[in-house]
Write a protein that binds this DNA or RNA. Structure first.
Lengths: 213, 213
DNA sequence: CGATGTGAAGTATTTCACAGCT
DNA sequence: AGCTGTGAAATACTTCACATCG
């Protein structure tokens, strides 16, 4: 009944949600797979197929009901509840993340901040206080925090990831420029800014010299 | 002779480079596709095939020469020269990006910073000064800046992207939570922190309830 | 021998195209 | 008439497996 869901849909579902929320804010009541696809640079059949993995949401001849589909997508993504986060690393990026207003609809909330730098421990981070990374395991376990954002230098990242796993974290958003080694059952999403820029440079270079090496 | 390069290798090449640089720093002289793959969670044949799109770099029975492969990968990615960047948006994230030390080997260098907020214009951003976004087109065109980082709120992002394109920018790293509409020939890499967290939540949810909806 | 480079085989994902609902 | 949901076809990507080289 459920064919296995392609890994790529996990990335597109949030884009559908983002676009639907924008359409809803503009008062749009219904959207066709064709229009939704075009606004995201996709093909209509892909949108229909992606959504169809999870249920029947559209009406032939009409399209998808924007307002109704939003909570359904949230439920699919698991963002119909609040996910508490631990932030590990309070450098420039960590600082920006604490103040980031974009964690949509409060589905994500940073509940603890850690750093190894003694100069930072005890300082305010939004309405939190930066804690010693040595207390990470106890604190994260005590608060039962399920997700973490890792914003540490490369050298410190794997050790911190190990501790997060020991503390019971099941998902890590990793900004450190290393590939983390974690046990099966722990999800990792990697965001390396340099990797992104290198990828961009590569695409630009390809666009200008498609054939040569 | 050149079969078309899968889109996915554009993402893996920077990971190979990152790992090779780390191995080089540790004094490792040679690495096999098997070891390189395992450290990145890939299969050995994939590493070999990816690299083989661009040349013959390995030696049978030995592996890949770490020190020699690094500059070759840089040339492939186009990071054997410095890419100048414009940063558009000097909020929390923009601030972090200016101070980010991870733009490897200085292949990426922010050369101009823009914001629409009058309160920010004229302030120091690293060793630069925040300029009025109204001057974006003239300044970016004058300095011939090829790449941009867009770190603006969703509402302002498309308009800024249009101006960047008008100014001659050919690649955009987009942190704004919208899908940009740009002409063919302009590359875009998207990084939406909320999308990343939603993707993470989805994976965690799947891992715990693989079959149900 | 151990490890590469690579056709061929195997999967996964996307796109087509159309029956059927509104 | 317009648009969904979906098998079937097409394409893209990954993995296998092996001849070949150092």
């Amino acid at each position: 009944m459920k064919p296995t869901i392609p890994k790529t849909v996990a990335h597109r579902l949030p884009l559908y949600l983002r676009r639907l929320e924008s359409l809803d804010a503009d008062g749009v009541e219904t959207v066709s797979s064709h229009d939704l696809a075009r606004s995201l640079g996709l093909k209509d059949a892909q949108v229909r197929k992606d959504l169809a993995y999870f249920g029947t949401f559209g009406r032939p001849g009409v399209g998808y009901p924007v307002r109704e589909l939003i909570p359904k997508l949230r439920a699919i993504l698991g963002t119909d509840r609040t996910w508490r986060l631990a932030l590990v690393g309070f450098g420039n990026l960590g600082h920006a993340l604490v103040s980031y207003r974009g964690f949509r609809r409060k589905a994500f909330k940073i509940e603890a901040v850690f750093d190894a730098d003694l100069a930072k421990i005890g300082h305010r981070a939004g309405d939190l206080v930066v804690q010693d990374i040595a207390d990470l395991v106890t604190q994260v376990r005590r608060l039962q925090i399920p997700l973490a954002i890792l914003a540490l230098p490369a050298e410190a990242a794997q050790a911190a990831a190990d501790e997060l796993v020991r503390a019971g974290v099941v998902g890590i958003l990793n900004f450190a420029p290393v590939t983390l080694d974690v046990p099966a059952g722990v999800a990792v999403i990697n965001v390396d800014l340099t990797v992104c820029l290198e990828e961009l440079a590569f695409h630009v270079r390809m666009a200008r010299a498609p054939a040569s090496g």
